[in-house]
Amino acid sequence: MSDQTLTGEAQQEHEAQTEHEAQTEHEGRAHPSDRNYVGIALILAVLTALEVVSFYVEEQLGALLVPALMIMMIVKFAIVVMWFMHLRFDSNLFTRVFVSGLVLAITVYVGALMTFRFW
């Protein structure tokens, strides 16, 4: 997208265009309905139940336990962020801001914890 023009007319036209795009963006990806939200919550509930179950069948799962729990955690996290917090439907800028904080946190803290382990 460009906005090299400064002359009043072009500017207005441009503004109108952007506004239009912003609107269609909003309408194009409407927020989920209440029914969707309940469905999403059900998925979350099932995942939580699975998490708790896997804790009790720890021995059968063996080495799979930790990866399984981690995956379920990430899925739950992503569902809440994308649907309940609307990141899926909202501006990319929000996603970028939040994800940069998240990735930064994971990177520096995993890095720091690793220096306690590796020699």
Binding site: L104, T107, V108, G111, M114, T115, F118, W119
Partner: peptide
């Protein structure tokens, strides 16, 4: 700037890999 902090800690006993 986020990936260099341990250079303040070279003398603190962090390992050779770090």
């Amino acid at each position: 700037g986020w990936g260099v902090w341990a250079h303040h800690m070279f003398a603190s006993g962090v390992g050779p890999v770090s």
